[in-house]
């Protein structure tokens, strides 16, 4: 049995944990990227704001656009509800509601991470301290995934939490694609350039895109040799075996939904998402086309998120006919 109210917090716990890990990854990756780029190549920190969808919120709070401001805003700013410290804090508040359903260690992990961030997120401006912090966050999130993966029953508690993780993961991958990959492409139907014509740093940047979603290694195992734009896009959208590709997330979500109480709105929204993913518009290497495609995917993800809320978390209202069901414990 899973209370509708608690399910809502489980779902958001999944989303917030995934978001925290993703945010730590892209911040670490962007910081690392600088090391590989020559000092005269301008590094635009505001792309991180675009990825996280916080360009306007940032402009409201900061005058500058530099590294220190952007990093403080994204990692340590308590006034920014999507900052890393606030995301982990939100995960902890979600966990507070569903703590009784999860392994004891899960609470300890998130609690410790929360305490660590409250105390140490202020060091976001120093690059080395920042990298260390982001690595710690990724590690803590991975450890937590391990705890959940190896100790939880595969019941509705597990499924709802995973549903949150997968939808957040798909969302993050599409955002990274849109902003980071899109930024490397040209607009208009220009075919992929032969490697020799590319800027020497383009490959480094494409590697950065892959690293943002921990996909570098897997990509190399599948596609030996130079990193090619079209392949990266295909890989992140449609590789069935890579756990952070949009397709893989959709597969996972459909499998989870299939075992949750049957709700036609949710299965319908999953199907809708899959169909958008399958029917890509335009050419693979056009920024405008990619942007439109990502937009469509995000609309479909938002629709799925919405129906999950109405189908499960608002279930069992007094308006619904009371159904007696004996529950074996």
């Amino acid at each position: 049995m899973l209370l509708a109210r608690t399910a809502n917090d489980l779902y958001w716990l999944g989303r917030h944990l995934e978001r925290a890990e993703g945010l730590a990854r892209i911040c670490a990756e962007h910081t690392n990227l600088l090391v590989d780029l020559p000092t005269d190549v301008e590094s635009d920190w505001t792309t991180l704001l675009a990825v996280t969808g916080t360009v306007a919120a940032f402009a409201d709070r900061y005058a500058g656009r530099g590294e220190a401001d952007v990093m403080t805003f994204l990692l340590a700013d308590i006034g920014n509800p999507t900052s890393l410290v606030r995301t982990v804090s939100s995960a902890r508040e979600n966990l507070r509601v569903c703590r009784q359903l999860l392994p004891v260690d899960a609470w300890e992990r998130v609690n410790r991470l929360h305490l660590r961030l409250v105390e140490g997120a202020g060091c976001a401006t120093s690059r080395s301290a920042r990298l260390e912090l982001c690595e710690e966050v990724v590690e803590a999130c991975q450890a937590l995934s391990g705890i959940l993966e190896t100790t939880m029953s595969r019941d509705d508690v597990w499924r709802v939490c995973q549903l949150g993780r997968q939808i957040e993961r798909a969302d993050l991958t599409t955002r990274v694609l849109d902003v980071r990959a899109g930024g490397l492409m040209r607009t208009g139907s220009v075919p992929s350039q032969p490697p020799a014509d590319r800027s020497p740093y383009e490959e480094v940047r494409w590697l950065g895109v892959l690293r943002s979603v921990a996909g570098q290694h897997t990509y190399h195992r599948q596609h030996r040799g130079a990193v090619e734009a079209a392949r990266v896009v295909d890989f992140l959208l449609g590789d069935a075996s890579f756990p952070r590709s949009v397709l893989h997330c959709v597969d996972e979500m459909e499998a989870l939904v299939a075992e949750l109480p049957v709700r036609t709105t949710v299965t319908g929204a999953c199907r809708g998402l899959r169909s958008v993913l399958r029917h890509r518009r335009g050419t693979a290497m056009d920024a405008q086309d990619l942007h439109r495609h990502v937009d469509d995917l995000q609309v479909a993800l938002a629709a799925l998120h919405h129906v999950i809320g109405t189908a499960y978390f608002e279930a069992g209202h007094p308006a619904g006919a009371a159904r007696t069901r004996s529950v074996a414990r």
Partner: peptide, 11 residues
């Protein structure tokens, strides 16, 4: 008395 669950009301 029923609980509101994701499965609907449960006594």
């Amino acid at each position: 008395a029923y609980l509101r669950t994701i499965d609907g009301p449960v006594r």
